[in-house]
Simulated assay, not measured.
Amino acid sequence: HYTEREMMLIKVRAVGKERDEMKRMTDIFRGRIIDVTEKTYTIELTGDAAKLDAFIEAVDRAAILETVRTGSSGIGRGERILRV
Rank of each mutant, 00 (worst) to 15 (best):
V68P: 10
R69H: 02
K51L: 07
K51N: 02
I28V: 03
E4T: 08
T37A: 01
E6G: 13
K23Y: 11
V12N: 02
G71Y: 01
G74F: 04
G71Q: 03
F55C: 05
Y41C: 02
K11V: 04
E18N: 04
K11H: 09
R77V: 10
M7N: 04
R83A: 10
D53Q: 09
I43Y: 14
R80V: 15
G71K: 12
G47E: 05
L9G: 10
G47S: 13
I28F: 09
R24C: 07
E57M: 14
V59L: 11
L65R: 11
V12A: 02
S72G: 03
D60R: 13
A14H: 11
G74V: 00
T70D: 03
V68H: 11
E66S: 11
E6W: 10
G31F: 07
A54Y: 05
V12Q: 03
T46N: 15
I33A: 03
A49I: 06
R77N: 12
T46Q: 15
I10T: 01
A54P: 00
T67P: 10
A63C: 14
F29G: 01
K11F: 12
R83Y: 10
I10P: 01
K23L: 09
E4C: 07
I81T: 15
V68R: 11
E38C: 09
E44N: 09
K51H: 11
A49M: 08
E38W: 12
R83P: 04
V15E: 09
T3M: 13
I33C: 05
R5Q: 07
D27F: 09
A62N: 15
K39I: 03
E21C: 04
A54Q: 02
D53S: 13
Y2M: 13
T26C: 04
I33L: 07
E18P: 00
E66L: 12
F29K: 04
I34M: 08
R13K: 15
G74H: 00
T42K: 09
M8L: 02
M7G: 09
R5Y: 04
D60N: 02
E66W: 07
F55Q: 04
H1C: 14
T67M: 10
D35W: 15
T67F: 01
A49L: 06
